[in-house]
Computed example of a mutant assay.
Amino acid sequence: MLRSVALLRRCPVVFISDLQPRLLQLVLPVTLTRPTRAMSQNALSVQPIVISGPSGSGKSTLLNKLFAEFPGCFAFSVSHTTRNPRPGEVNGKDYHFVTKEDFVKLVEESGFLEHAQFSGNMYGTSKQSVRDISSSGQLCVLDVEINGVKSIKQSDLKPKPRFIFIKPPSMDELRRRLQSRGTETEDSLKKRLDSTQEAMDYADSGAYDHVIVNNELEVAYEHLKGILIADIHKIQADKLKKGQ
């Protein structure tokens, strides 16, 4: 499922002579409670990013480096859930906490890109949450597992997201990384490796636009940044034009 972190810091100004001015105007954001409400496609001129990869692939480290270098240019979509807030969690920041009735209503209205149930609670990524981030002038990041990727691929989200898979160099290396954490039992390790093999087979089928093998962190990071740099420059140019 999606991470529930909203990155709200401003994007730094970058003085690059060939930055293009903003071509399209953003529309006013609409509320999360009306996911089927019409919205101008101009607000979605930058492709959302769907990123996936098994635990231990280094996906979180790569994203943290990207957000640190370009603060305010990215934001994670905030998931909906029917579970109760935990101490310290904030509605609208960590999750959108909703009733089961409201969640089911959104499902019936085709308001989710993907949704699932875990331990009796429902979780989902709303289309509106992605639109809200896009309309704010940030690049929306969707961090999902294989089933979420498949659901989003079948959705009608426009523009079509860019799909990126972070791949460990080998299963042996992934096993070593997971064991080095000291948090896995033999049973949980086996389950992780089994699900990883399924995810890697899906990636090898050509399901993603980009597959990044994270053997050397800095090399993998430059690969990821290179894929997204044109969109980053577009966002920076827009903020420069608005004096932010």
Rank of each mutant, 00 (worst) to 15 (best):
S180Y: 08
S180G: 10
S180W: 02
R181A: 03
R181I: 01
R181T: 06
R181H: 08
R181P: 05
R181K: 13
G182P: 06
G182E: 11
G182L: 08
G182Q: 10
G182Y: 12
T183Y: 00
T183Q: 15
T183V: 15
T183A: 14
T183G: 03
E184L: 05
E184G: 06
E184W: 09
T185H: 12
T185I: 10
E186G: 08
E186P: 00
E186N: 11
E186W: 04
E186K: 11
D187T: 14
D187L: 10
D187E: 15
D187R: 13
D187V: 13
D187Q: 14
S188K: 11
S188H: 06
S188W: 04
S188D: 07
S188M: 13
S188Y: 03
S188G: 07
S188L: 08
L189D: 06
L189R: 05
L189K: 09
K190S: 12
K190D: 14
K190G: 09
K190M: 12
K190L: 14
K191Y: 02
K191C: 02
K191N: 11
K191L: 09
K191E: 15
K191F: 01
R192G: 05
R192I: 03
L193I: 06
L193G: 01
L193Q: 04
D194N: 14
D194G: 06
D194A: 11
S195R: 15
S195D: 10
T196D: 04
T196H: 07
T196Q: 06
Q197G: 15
Q197P: 01
E198Q: 12
E198W: 04
E198D: 12
A199D: 01
A199S: 15
A199V: 01
A199N: 04
A199R: 03
M200L: 15
M200I: 15
D201S: 14
Y202T: 00
Y202V: 00
Y202N: 02
A203R: 03
A203P: 03
A203G: 10
A203L: 06
D204K: 10
D204L: 08
D204H: 14
D204V: 02
S205K: 08
S205L: 09
S205W: 09
G206Q: 07
G206V: 05
A207I: 03
A207C: 11
A207E: 06
A207Y: 08
A207H: 02
A207G: 09
Y208Q: 05
Y208R: 06
Y208P: 12
Y208M: 09
Y208V: 04
Y208A: 02
Y208I: 02
H210G: 01
H210I: 04
H210D: 04
H210F: 13
H210V: 08
V211I: 15
V211T: 12
V211S: 05
V211C: 08
V211Q: 01
V211N: 03
